[in-house]
Design a binder for these strands. Structure first.
Lengths: 268, 268
DNA sequence: CGTTATGTTGAGCTCCCTCAAGGTTGGTGG
DNA sequence: CCACCAACCTTGAGGGAGCTCAACATAACG
Protein backbone atom coordinates (compact mmCIF):
# COMPACT_ATOMS: atom_id res chain seq x y z
CA UNK A 1 0.00 0.00 0.00
CA UNK A 2 2.71 2.38 0.95
CA UNK A 3 5.70 2.51 -1.30
CA UNK A 4 8.87 4.43 -1.07
CA UNK A 5 10.21 4.08 -4.56
CA UNK A 6 7.59 6.42 -5.81
CA UNK A 7 9.29 9.70 -5.30
CA UNK A 8 10.75 11.31 -8.34
CA UNK A 9 14.22 11.54 -7.02
CA UNK A 10 16.98 13.88 -7.95
CA UNK A 11 16.95 17.57 -8.38
CA UNK A 12 14.16 18.28 -10.77
CA UNK A 13 13.90 21.85 -11.80
CA UNK A 14 11.49 21.70 -14.67
CA UNK A 15 10.86 25.27 -15.75
CA UNK A 16 10.62 26.40 -12.13
CA UNK A 17 7.49 28.42 -11.77
CA UNK A 18 8.28 31.93 -10.78
CA UNK A 19 5.42 31.55 -8.34
CA UNK A 20 6.28 32.34 -4.74
CA UNK A 21 6.22 29.20 -2.61
CA UNK A 22 3.20 28.96 -0.33
CA UNK A 23 5.46 28.82 2.67
CA UNK A 24 6.86 32.24 1.90
CA UNK A 25 3.38 33.64 1.44
CA UNK A 26 2.28 32.23 4.73
CA UNK A 27 5.32 33.18 6.78
CA UNK A 28 5.18 36.71 5.46
CA UNK A 29 1.90 37.05 7.31
CA UNK A 30 3.45 36.10 10.61
CA UNK A 31 6.75 37.86 10.58
CA UNK A 32 8.37 40.69 8.76
CA UNK A 33 10.32 39.15 5.92
CA UNK A 34 12.44 41.48 3.87
CA UNK A 35 12.97 41.02 0.13
CA UNK A 36 16.29 39.31 0.76
CA UNK A 37 14.73 36.99 3.28
CA UNK A 38 12.04 35.97 0.85
CA UNK A 39 14.45 35.52 -1.98
CA UNK A 40 16.84 33.42 0.07
CA UNK A 41 14.06 31.22 1.37
CA UNK A 42 12.52 30.77 -2.06
CA UNK A 43 15.87 29.83 -3.47
CA UNK A 44 16.59 27.37 -0.67
CA UNK A 45 13.24 25.77 -1.33
CA UNK A 46 14.00 25.32 -5.01
CA UNK A 47 17.19 23.31 -4.62
CA UNK A 48 15.71 19.88 -4.01
CA UNK A 49 12.14 19.47 -5.15
CA UNK A 50 10.45 16.11 -5.36
CA UNK A 51 7.22 15.12 -6.96
CA UNK A 52 5.19 12.41 -5.32
CA UNK A 53 3.23 10.09 -7.56
CA UNK A 54 1.68 7.69 -5.04
CA UNK A 55 1.33 7.48 -1.28
CA UNK A 56 4.84 7.26 0.03
CA UNK A 57 6.57 7.43 3.33
CA UNK A 58 8.95 10.18 4.10
CA UNK A 59 12.21 8.86 5.39
CA UNK A 60 15.69 9.96 6.15
CA UNK A 61 17.72 8.26 3.53
CA UNK A 62 21.02 9.86 4.36
CA UNK A 63 23.04 10.46 7.46
CA UNK A 64 21.74 13.92 7.89
CA UNK A 65 18.20 14.72 8.78
CA UNK A 66 16.26 16.82 6.38
CA UNK A 67 13.36 19.13 6.65
CA UNK A 68 10.45 18.51 4.32
CA UNK A 69 8.32 21.41 3.22
CA UNK A 70 5.07 20.92 1.37
CA UNK A 71 4.99 23.09 -1.75
CA UNK A 72 1.80 21.67 -3.17
CA UNK A 73 -0.58 18.96 -2.07
CA UNK A 74 -0.77 17.16 1.22
CA UNK A 75 1.19 15.19 3.76
CA UNK A 76 -0.11 13.35 6.81
CA UNK A 77 1.51 12.54 10.11
CA UNK A 78 0.57 9.26 11.80
CA UNK A 79 1.29 7.82 15.18
CA UNK A 80 1.41 4.08 15.61
CA UNK A 81 -0.33 2.05 18.28
CA UNK A 82 0.89 -1.16 19.80
CA UNK A 83 -1.82 -3.17 18.11
CA UNK A 84 -0.77 -2.19 14.61
CA UNK A 85 -3.34 0.53 14.20
CA UNK A 86 -2.21 3.95 13.19
CA UNK A 87 -3.77 7.28 13.88
CA UNK A 88 -3.66 10.55 12.01
CA UNK A 89 -2.30 13.23 14.32
CA UNK A 90 -1.53 16.05 11.90
CA UNK A 91 -2.03 17.18 8.34
CA UNK A 92 0.33 19.35 6.38
CA UNK A 93 -0.98 21.39 3.46
CA UNK A 94 0.89 23.53 0.99
CA UNK A 95 3.15 25.89 2.86
CA UNK A 96 3.51 23.67 5.91
CA UNK A 97 6.74 22.36 7.33
CA UNK A 98 6.50 18.66 8.13
CA UNK A 99 7.33 18.09 11.72
CA UNK A 100 9.88 20.77 12.34
CA UNK A 101 10.16 19.50 15.89
CA UNK A 102 11.43 16.13 14.78
CA UNK A 103 14.55 17.76 13.49
CA UNK A 104 15.72 17.83 17.06
CA UNK A 105 13.64 14.98 18.41
CA UNK A 106 15.33 12.12 20.18
CA UNK A 107 13.06 9.48 18.76
CA UNK A 108 10.95 9.27 15.68
CA UNK A 109 7.57 8.33 17.02
CA UNK A 110 5.56 9.29 13.98
CA UNK A 111 5.46 8.50 10.31
CA UNK A 112 4.95 11.09 7.65
CA UNK A 113 3.13 10.00 4.54
CA UNK A 114 3.15 12.09 1.41
CA UNK A 115 0.01 11.96 -0.67
CA UNK A 116 0.04 11.51 -4.39
CA UNK A 117 0.37 14.71 -6.33
CA UNK A 118 2.33 16.49 -3.64
CA UNK A 119 5.41 18.54 -4.35
CA UNK A 120 7.94 18.54 -1.56
CA UNK A 121 11.03 20.61 -0.99
CA UNK A 122 13.75 19.07 1.12
CA UNK A 123 16.33 21.03 3.00
CA UNK A 124 19.20 19.62 4.97
CA UNK A 125 19.60 20.50 8.58
CA UNK A 126 22.85 22.31 7.92
CA UNK A 127 21.43 24.26 5.00
CA UNK A 128 18.57 25.32 7.20
CA UNK A 129 20.88 26.25 10.03
CA UNK A 130 22.92 28.41 7.69
CA UNK A 131 19.80 30.07 6.35
CA UNK A 132 18.52 30.74 9.85
CA UNK A 133 21.81 32.24 10.91
CA UNK A 134 22.08 34.64 8.02
CA UNK A 135 18.39 35.50 8.13
CA UNK A 136 17.13 35.80 11.71
CA UNK A 137 13.72 36.79 10.41
CA UNK A 138 13.39 33.41 8.75
CA UNK A 139 14.36 31.66 11.95
CA UNK A 140 11.74 33.60 13.84
CA UNK A 141 9.08 32.88 11.25
CA UNK A 142 9.76 29.15 11.34
CA UNK A 143 9.55 29.16 15.09
CA UNK A 144 6.22 30.93 14.99
CA UNK A 145 5.01 28.41 12.50
CA UNK A 146 6.00 25.57 14.81
CA UNK A 147 4.05 27.24 17.60
CA UNK A 148 0.97 27.29 15.44
CA UNK A 149 1.39 23.62 14.61
CA UNK A 150 1.45 22.96 18.31
CA UNK A 151 -1.62 25.10 18.81
CA UNK A 152 -3.45 23.09 16.17
CA UNK A 153 -2.63 19.91 18.03
CA UNK A 154 -4.16 21.30 21.19
CA UNK A 155 -7.26 22.33 19.30
CA UNK A 156 -7.64 18.82 17.95
CA UNK A 157 -7.45 17.59 21.52
CA UNK A 158 -10.27 19.89 22.55
CA UNK A 159 -12.18 18.97 19.43
CA UNK A 160 -12.18 15.31 20.38
CA UNK A 161 -12.95 15.85 24.01
CA UNK A 162 -15.62 18.49 23.96
CA UNK A 163 -17.56 18.29 20.71
CA UNK A 164 -19.98 15.81 19.20
CA UNK A 165 -19.60 14.09 15.85
CA UNK A 166 -21.26 16.76 13.74
CA UNK A 167 -19.29 19.54 15.40
CA UNK A 168 -16.01 17.68 15.09
CA UNK A 169 -16.46 17.00 11.42
CA UNK A 170 -17.48 20.57 10.71
CA UNK A 171 -14.61 21.90 12.77
CA UNK A 172 -11.97 19.92 10.99
CA UNK A 173 -13.35 20.89 7.60
CA UNK A 174 -13.49 24.53 8.64
CA UNK A 175 -9.90 24.35 9.79
CA UNK A 176 -8.75 22.87 6.52
CA UNK A 177 -10.59 25.55 4.58
CA UNK A 178 -9.06 28.29 6.65
CA UNK A 179 -5.54 26.93 6.44
CA UNK A 180 -5.84 26.44 2.70
CA UNK A 181 -7.08 29.99 2.36
CA UNK A 182 -3.98 31.27 4.13
CA UNK A 183 -1.85 30.00 1.27
CA UNK A 184 -4.23 30.80 -1.54
CA UNK A 185 -5.54 27.26 -1.84
CA UNK A 186 -9.17 28.21 -1.32
CA UNK A 187 -10.25 29.10 -4.81
CA UNK A 188 -13.81 29.20 -6.06
CA UNK A 189 -15.05 27.93 -2.74
CA UNK A 190 -13.18 24.66 -2.89
CA UNK A 191 -10.04 23.16 -1.47
CA UNK A 192 -8.03 20.08 -2.17
CA UNK A 193 -8.82 17.34 0.35
CA UNK A 194 -7.02 14.17 -0.73
CA UNK A 195 -7.24 12.14 2.48
CA UNK A 196 -9.50 9.12 2.83
CA UNK A 197 -12.72 9.27 4.76
CA UNK A 198 -11.31 6.61 7.05
CA UNK A 199 -8.40 8.83 8.05
CA UNK A 200 -10.67 11.81 8.33
CA UNK A 201 -12.97 9.83 10.56
CA UNK A 202 -10.05 8.73 12.68
CA UNK A 203 -8.85 12.28 13.14
CA UNK A 204 -12.35 13.10 14.37
CA UNK A 205 -12.33 10.10 16.67
CA UNK A 206 -15.18 8.51 14.74
CA UNK A 207 -15.69 5.30 12.85
CA UNK A 208 -15.70 5.61 9.08
CA UNK A 209 -19.35 4.63 8.91
CA UNK A 210 -20.49 7.28 11.27
CA UNK A 211 -18.26 9.98 9.85
CA UNK A 212 -19.71 9.15 6.47
CA UNK A 213 -23.24 9.54 7.75
CA UNK A 214 -22.44 12.87 9.31
CA UNK A 215 -20.76 14.07 6.15
CA UNK A 216 -23.71 12.96 4.11
CA UNK A 217 -25.96 15.13 6.23
CA UNK A 218 -23.74 18.13 5.59
CA UNK A 219 -23.93 17.34 1.88
CA UNK A 220 -27.71 17.13 1.90
CA UNK A 221 -28.00 20.42 3.72
CA UNK A 222 -25.87 21.94 1.02
CA UNK A 223 -23.22 23.10 3.43
CA UNK A 224 -20.33 21.26 1.81
CA UNK A 225 -19.73 18.52 -0.70
CA UNK A 226 -16.64 16.37 -1.00
CA UNK A 227 -15.78 14.30 -4.03
CA UNK A 228 -12.75 13.60 -6.15
CA UNK A 229 -10.46 14.67 -3.35
CA UNK A 230 -12.02 18.12 -3.44
CA UNK A 231 -14.06 19.80 -0.77
CA UNK A 232 -16.61 22.34 -1.97
CA UNK A 233 -17.68 24.75 0.71
CA UNK A 234 -21.12 26.05 -0.19
CA UNK A 235 -22.09 27.67 3.06
CA UNK A 236 -19.08 28.62 5.07
CA UNK A 237 -20.86 30.61 7.77
CA UNK A 238 -23.10 27.65 8.47
CA UNK A 239 -20.11 25.31 8.57
CA UNK A 240 -18.25 27.48 11.04
CA UNK A 241 -21.35 28.03 13.12
CA UNK A 242 -21.93 24.32 13.49
CA UNK A 243 -18.30 23.85 14.46
CA UNK A 244 -18.08 26.79 16.81
CA UNK A 245 -15.03 27.59 14.77
CA UNK A 246 -12.82 30.53 15.55
CA UNK A 247 -9.55 30.91 13.66
CA UNK A 248 -7.73 32.41 16.63
CA UNK A 249 -5.64 29.35 17.14
CA UNK A 250 -4.40 29.49 13.55
CA UNK A 251 -3.34 33.10 13.45
CA UNK A 252 -0.74 34.51 15.77
CA UNK A 253 -1.70 37.97 16.90
CA UNK A 254 0.61 40.61 15.57
CA UNK A 255 3.20 40.05 18.17
CA UNK A 256 4.96 42.89 19.79
CA UNK A 257 6.65 40.41 21.99
CA UNK A 258 8.34 38.60 19.18
CA UNK A 259 9.24 41.69 17.23
CA UNK A 260 10.86 43.07 20.30
CA UNK A 261 13.01 40.03 20.83
CA UNK A 262 15.30 39.82 17.85
CA UNK A 263 17.50 37.35 19.66
CA UNK A 264 14.88 34.66 19.17
CA UNK A 265 16.40 31.70 17.37
CA UNK A 266 15.55 28.25 16.28
CA UNK A 267 17.26 25.51 18.26
CA UNK A 268 19.91 24.90 15.66
CA UNK B 1 -12.84 29.76 42.98
CA UNK B 2 -9.56 30.77 41.44
CA UNK B 3 -7.60 33.33 43.32
CA UNK B 4 -4.35 34.96 42.56
CA UNK B 5 -3.43 36.46 45.88
CA UNK B 6 -2.73 33.07 47.25
CA UNK B 7 0.87 32.72 46.27
CA UNK B 8 3.37 33.29 48.98
CA UNK B 9 5.28 35.99 47.23
CA UNK B 10 8.80 37.03 47.71
CA UNK B 11 11.92 34.97 47.83
CA UNK B 12 11.31 32.42 50.48
CA UNK B 13 14.27 30.29 51.28
CA UNK B 14 13.13 28.53 54.39
CA UNK B 15 15.89 26.11 55.29
CA UNK B 16 16.31 25.12 51.67
CA UNK B 17 16.25 21.37 51.50
CA UNK B 18 19.51 20.07 50.20
CA UNK B 19 17.37 17.73 48.12
CA UNK B 20 18.07 17.82 44.42
CA UNK B 21 15.16 19.34 42.53
CA UNK B 22 13.05 16.79 40.66
CA UNK B 23 13.78 18.58 37.43
CA UNK B 24 17.48 17.92 37.79
CA UNK B 25 16.84 14.28 38.57
CA UNK B 26 14.66 13.92 35.54
CA UNK B 27 16.83 15.82 33.10
CA UNK B 28 19.87 13.86 34.17
CA UNK B 29 18.17 10.81 32.72
CA UNK B 30 17.79 12.40 29.33
CA UNK B 31 21.02 14.21 28.84
CA UNK B 32 24.49 14.13 30.22
CA UNK B 33 24.61 16.79 32.89
CA UNK B 34 27.96 17.42 34.51
CA UNK B 35 28.31 18.35 38.17
CA UNK B 36 28.60 22.02 37.25
CA UNK B 37 25.49 21.81 35.12
CA UNK B 38 23.51 20.28 37.94
CA UNK B 39 24.76 22.73 40.45
CA UNK B 40 24.05 25.74 38.29
CA UNK B 41 20.56 24.52 37.50
CA UNK B 42 19.78 23.71 41.12
CA UNK B 43 20.97 27.12 42.15
CA UNK B 44 18.95 28.88 39.48
CA UNK B 45 15.88 27.01 40.66
CA UNK B 46 16.38 28.13 44.23
CA UNK B 47 16.37 31.86 43.61
CA UNK B 48 12.64 32.46 43.43
CA UNK B 49 10.53 29.77 45.02
CA UNK B 50 6.85 30.21 45.71
CA UNK B 51 4.50 28.15 47.76
CA UNK B 52 0.94 27.83 46.57
CA UNK B 53 -1.77 27.60 49.19
CA UNK B 54 -4.90 27.45 47.05
CA UNK B 55 -5.73 27.07 43.39
CA UNK B 56 -4.19 30.02 41.68
CA UNK B 57 -3.55 31.18 38.18
CA UNK B 58 -0.07 31.59 36.95
CA UNK B 59 0.40 34.95 35.35
CA UNK B 60 3.06 37.21 34.05
CA UNK B 61 3.05 39.99 36.52
CA UNK B 62 6.06 41.83 35.18
CA UNK B 63 7.26 42.98 31.82
CA UNK B 64 9.40 40.00 31.32
CA UNK B 65 8.10 36.52 30.81
CA UNK B 66 9.09 33.92 33.28
CA UNK B 67 9.43 30.21 33.20
CA UNK B 68 7.65 28.28 35.91
CA UNK B 69 9.06 24.98 37.06
CA UNK B 70 7.15 22.66 39.33
CA UNK B 71 9.30 21.60 42.28
CA UNK B 72 6.57 19.81 44.16
CA UNK B 73 2.91 19.26 43.57
CA UNK B 74 0.89 19.84 40.45
CA UNK B 75 -0.01 22.41 37.83
CA UNK B 76 -2.62 22.15 35.10
CA UNK B 77 -2.83 23.73 31.68
CA UNK B 78 -6.27 24.64 30.35
CA UNK B 79 -7.49 25.81 26.99
CA UNK B 80 -10.60 27.94 26.83
CA UNK B 81 -13.57 27.44 24.54
CA UNK B 82 -15.76 30.12 23.10
CA UNK B 83 -18.69 29.08 25.23
CA UNK B 84 -16.88 29.64 28.49
CA UNK B 85 -15.95 26.04 29.05
CA UNK B 86 -12.37 25.17 29.67
CA UNK B 87 -10.52 22.01 28.93
CA UNK B 88 -7.51 20.42 30.56
CA UNK B 89 -4.82 19.92 27.92
CA UNK B 90 -1.77 19.16 30.04
CA UNK B 91 -0.66 18.35 33.56
CA UNK B 92 2.66 19.24 35.06
CA UNK B 93 4.02 17.22 37.95
CA UNK B 94 7.11 17.77 40.03
CA UNK B 95 10.06 18.25 37.73
CA UNK B 96 8.03 19.57 34.82
CA UNK B 97 8.50 22.89 33.12
CA UNK B 98 5.19 24.65 32.62
CA UNK B 99 4.69 25.44 29.01
CA UNK B 100 8.23 26.04 27.87
CA UNK B 101 6.88 26.74 24.44
CA UNK B 102 4.90 29.71 25.58
CA UNK B 103 8.09 31.50 26.38
CA UNK B 104 8.37 32.24 22.71
CA UNK B 105 4.73 31.96 21.80
CA UNK B 106 3.04 34.85 20.06
CA UNK B 107 -0.24 34.47 21.90
CA UNK B 108 -1.16 33.05 25.23
CA UNK B 109 -3.94 30.66 24.39
CA UNK B 110 -3.83 28.66 27.57
CA UNK B 111 -4.10 29.23 31.29
CA UNK B 112 -1.88 27.56 33.82
CA UNK B 113 -3.39 26.82 37.18
CA UNK B 114 -1.27 25.88 40.14
CA UNK B 115 -2.79 23.48 42.59
CA UNK B 116 -2.69 23.96 46.32
CA UNK B 117 0.40 22.63 47.96
CA UNK B 118 2.60 23.10 44.94
CA UNK B 119 6.04 24.60 45.12
CA UNK B 120 7.05 26.54 42.05
CA UNK B 121 10.36 27.98 40.95
CA UNK B 122 10.29 30.94 38.66
CA UNK B 123 13.06 31.91 36.32
CA UNK B 124 13.16 34.94 34.12
CA UNK B 125 13.66 34.56 30.44
CA UNK B 126 16.99 36.31 30.56
CA UNK B 127 18.24 34.27 33.47
CA UNK B 128 17.32 31.15 31.60
CA UNK B 129 18.97 32.40 28.43
CA UNK B 130 22.16 33.06 30.35
CA UNK B 131 22.05 29.66 31.94
CA UNK B 132 21.49 27.98 28.59
CA UNK B 133 24.36 29.85 27.04
CA UNK B 134 26.87 28.94 29.68
CA UNK B 135 25.59 25.38 29.99
CA UNK B 136 24.73 23.94 26.59
CA UNK B 137 23.89 20.63 28.21
CA UNK B 138 21.09 22.30 30.13
CA UNK B 139 19.76 23.86 26.98
CA UNK B 140 19.74 20.49 25.28
CA UNK B 141 18.03 18.83 28.21
CA UNK B 142 15.28 21.43 28.31
CA UNK B 143 14.71 21.01 24.63
CA UNK B 144 14.41 17.25 25.01
CA UNK B 145 11.96 17.79 27.79
CA UNK B 146 9.85 20.01 25.60
CA UNK B 147 9.85 17.29 22.96
CA UNK B 148 8.49 14.85 25.46
CA UNK B 149 5.77 17.26 26.49
CA UNK B 150 4.79 17.44 22.86
CA UNK B 151 4.85 13.67 22.61
CA UNK B 152 2.52 13.44 25.58
CA UNK B 153 0.09 15.74 23.86
CA UNK B 154 0.02 13.49 20.82
CA UNK B 155 -0.56 10.48 23.02
CA UNK B 156 -3.53 12.18 24.61
CA UNK B 157 -4.88 12.77 21.15
CA UNK B 158 -4.63 9.09 20.32
CA UNK B 159 -6.04 8.23 23.71
CA UNK B 160 -9.20 10.18 23.03
CA UNK B 161 -9.62 9.00 19.50
CA UNK B 162 -8.87 5.34 19.69
CA UNK B 163 -9.71 4.05 23.15
CA UNK B 164 -12.89 3.52 25.12
CA UNK B 165 -13.68 4.98 28.50
CA UNK B 166 -12.10 2.26 30.59
CA UNK B 167 -8.93 2.25 28.53
CA UNK B 168 -8.66 6.03 28.56
CA UNK B 169 -9.00 6.26 32.29
CA UNK B 170 -6.50 3.48 32.85
CA UNK B 171 -4.09 5.00 30.38
CA UNK B 172 -4.08 8.40 31.96
CA UNK B 173 -3.59 6.93 35.42
CA UNK B 174 -0.77 4.74 34.14
CA UNK B 175 0.88 7.77 32.58
CA UNK B 176 0.68 9.74 35.80
CA UNK B 177 2.16 6.85 37.74
CA UNK B 178 5.01 6.49 35.31
CA UNK B 179 5.79 10.19 35.19
CA UNK B 180 5.70 10.44 38.96
CA UNK B 181 8.03 7.48 39.19
CA UNK B 182 10.55 9.25 36.97
CA UNK B 183 10.98 11.90 39.62
CA UNK B 184 10.71 9.65 42.63
CA UNK B 185 7.10 10.53 43.36
CA UNK B 186 5.89 6.95 43.22
CA UNK B 187 6.47 5.76 46.74
CA UNK B 188 4.80 2.83 48.39
CA UNK B 189 2.64 2.30 45.32
CA UNK B 190 0.95 5.64 45.52
CA UNK B 191 1.22 9.00 43.83
CA UNK B 192 -0.15 12.39 44.51
CA UNK B 193 -3.17 13.11 42.30
CA UNK B 194 -4.72 16.39 43.38
CA UNK B 195 -6.92 17.13 40.38
CA UNK B 196 -10.69 16.92 40.53
CA UNK B 197 -12.53 14.04 38.99
CA UNK B 198 -14.28 16.53 36.75
CA UNK B 199 -10.99 17.67 35.24
CA UNK B 200 -9.78 14.13 35.02
CA UNK B 201 -12.95 13.15 33.23
CA UNK B 202 -12.55 16.06 30.84
CA UNK B 203 -9.01 15.07 29.99
CA UNK B 204 -10.39 11.64 29.14
CA UNK B 205 -13.17 13.15 27.07
CA UNK B 206 -15.78 11.78 29.44
CA UNK B 207 -18.49 13.24 31.61
CA UNK B 208 -17.74 13.31 35.32
CA UNK B 209 -20.51 10.83 36.01
CA UNK B 210 -19.21 8.26 33.64
CA UNK B 211 -15.58 8.72 34.58
CA UNK B 212 -16.62 8.17 38.16
CA UNK B 213 -18.40 4.94 37.29
CA UNK B 214 -15.39 3.67 35.39
CA UNK B 215 -13.09 4.60 38.24
CA UNK B 216 -15.36 2.89 40.71
CA UNK B 217 -15.03 -0.32 38.71
CA UNK B 218 -11.25 -0.08 38.86
CA UNK B 219 -11.55 0.43 42.61
CA UNK B 220 -13.77 -2.60 43.05
CA UNK B 221 -11.42 -4.77 41.06
CA UNK B 222 -8.68 -3.67 43.37
CA UNK B 223 -6.57 -2.25 40.57
CA UNK B 224 -6.34 1.26 41.96
CA UNK B 225 -7.99 3.44 44.57
CA UNK B 226 -8.06 7.20 44.64
CA UNK B 227 -8.92 9.25 47.69
CA UNK B 228 -7.59 12.26 49.51
CA UNK B 229 -5.80 13.43 46.37
CA UNK B 230 -3.77 10.24 46.40
CA UNK B 231 -3.82 7.45 43.87
CA UNK B 232 -2.95 4.00 45.19
CA UNK B 233 -1.86 1.62 42.48
CA UNK B 234 -2.52 -1.89 43.69
CA UNK B 235 -2.10 -3.80 40.48
CA UNK B 236 0.06 -1.94 38.06
CA UNK B 237 0.42 -4.68 35.43
CA UNK B 238 -3.36 -4.95 35.24
CA UNK B 239 -3.70 -1.19 34.95
CA UNK B 240 -1.19 -0.99 32.13
CA UNK B 241 -2.67 -4.00 30.40
CA UNK B 242 -6.13 -2.44 30.37
CA UNK B 243 -4.68 0.77 29.02
CA UNK B 244 -2.42 -0.79 26.44
CA UNK B 245 0.16 1.43 28.03
CA UNK B 246 3.71 1.58 26.80
CA UNK B 247 6.04 4.22 28.24
CA UNK B 248 7.91 4.70 24.97
CA UNK B 249 6.42 8.11 24.44
CA UNK B 250 7.67 9.28 27.82
CA UNK B 251 11.26 8.18 27.54
CA UNK B 252 13.54 9.45 24.83
CA UNK B 253 15.81 6.70 23.60
CA UNK B 254 19.42 7.31 24.44
CA UNK B 255 20.03 9.55 21.56
CA UNK B 256 23.14 9.30 19.51
CA UNK B 257 21.69 11.96 17.29
CA UNK B 258 21.45 14.52 20.03
CA UNK B 259 24.73 13.68 21.65
CA UNK B 260 26.41 14.09 18.32
CA UNK B 261 24.98 17.52 17.78
CA UNK B 262 26.37 19.71 20.48
CA UNK B 263 25.29 22.80 18.61
CA UNK B 264 21.70 22.14 19.56
CA UNK B 265 20.25 25.14 21.34
CA UNK B 266 17.04 26.37 22.75
CA UNK B 267 15.48 29.22 20.81
CA UNK B 268 16.67 31.87 23.14
C1' DC C 1 -11.12 -5.50 -17.28
C1' DG C 2 -10.43 -7.80 -13.14
C1' DT C 3 -8.86 -6.35 -8.59
C1' DT C 4 -8.40 -3.73 -4.65
C1' DA C 5 -9.19 0.28 -1.99
C1' DT C 6 -12.72 3.32 -0.77
C1' DG C 7 -17.33 5.06 -0.12
C1' DT C 8 -22.45 4.13 1.13
C1' DT C 9 -26.20 2.28 3.54
C1' DG C 10 -28.88 -0.57 6.93
C1' DA C 11 -30.28 -2.87 11.41
C1' DG C 12 -29.39 -3.63 15.99
C1' DC C 13 -27.06 -2.84 20.07
C1' DT C 14 -24.26 -0.65 23.76
C1' DC C 15 -21.61 2.64 25.56
C1' DC C 16 -21.81 6.85 27.26
C1' DC C 17 -24.57 11.03 28.07
C1' DT C 18 -28.23 13.72 30.41
C1' DC C 19 -30.50 15.09 34.24
C1' DA C 20 -31.34 14.75 38.84
C1' DA C 21 -30.93 13.71 43.69
C1' DG C 22 -28.41 12.49 47.63
C1' DG C 23 -23.86 11.91 50.15
C1' DT C 24 -19.30 13.31 51.63
C1' DT C 25 -15.55 16.20 52.47
C1' DG C 26 -12.95 20.13 53.72
C1' DG C 27 -12.82 24.82 54.68
C1' DT C 28 -14.67 28.95 57.18
C1' DG C 29 -16.51 31.72 60.57
C1' DG C 30 -18.94 32.14 64.70
C1' DC D 1 -15.08 23.24 68.62
C1' DC D 2 -19.08 23.12 66.13
C1' DA D 3 -22.32 24.53 62.43
C1' DC D 4 -22.59 25.67 58.12
C1' DC D 5 -21.58 25.91 53.31
C1' DA D 6 -19.69 25.01 48.98
C1' DA D 7 -17.23 22.01 46.28
C1' DC D 8 -16.87 17.59 45.17
C1' DC D 9 -18.11 12.78 44.78
C1' DT D 10 -21.59 9.04 44.11
C1' DT D 11 -25.44 6.70 42.30
C1' DG D 12 -29.79 5.94 39.52
C1' DA D 13 -32.92 5.69 35.47
C1' DG D 14 -33.64 6.43 30.82
C1' DG D 15 -32.48 7.82 26.20
C1' DG D 16 -29.74 8.73 22.21
C1' DA D 17 -25.35 9.14 19.82
C1' DG D 18 -22.20 6.52 17.82
C1' DC D 19 -20.41 1.67 17.29
C1' DT D 20 -20.39 -3.08 15.09
C1' DC D 21 -20.92 -5.93 11.47
C1' DA D 22 -22.24 -6.84 7.07
C1' DA D 23 -23.47 -6.16 2.35
C1' DC D 24 -23.22 -3.59 -1.61
C1' DA D 25 -21.77 0.30 -4.78
C1' DT D 26 -18.33 2.92 -6.75
C1' DA D 27 -14.03 4.55 -7.95
C1' DA D 28 -8.94 4.03 -8.60
C1' DC D 29 -5.51 1.30 -10.73
C1' DG D 30 -2.64 -1.77 -13.06
Amino acid sequence: MIMTASITHGRSQPAVKAAVPSLVTKLARYAKLGPQDRLALSRALSLDIRNVSVRSMLEDNGRERKLAIVLDGWACCYRHLRNGQRHLVACYLAGDVCDLHSLTAPRRDTTIVLLAGARIARMSESAFAALATVHPAISRAFWLDAQIASSIEREWLVNLAKRNARERVAHLLAEFAFRAELVGGFTKGSIELPITQADFAGACGLTPSHANRVLRLLFEQDIVTWRNATLFVHNRPALEAIAGFSPDYLTPAVSRSVESRPNLRLPI
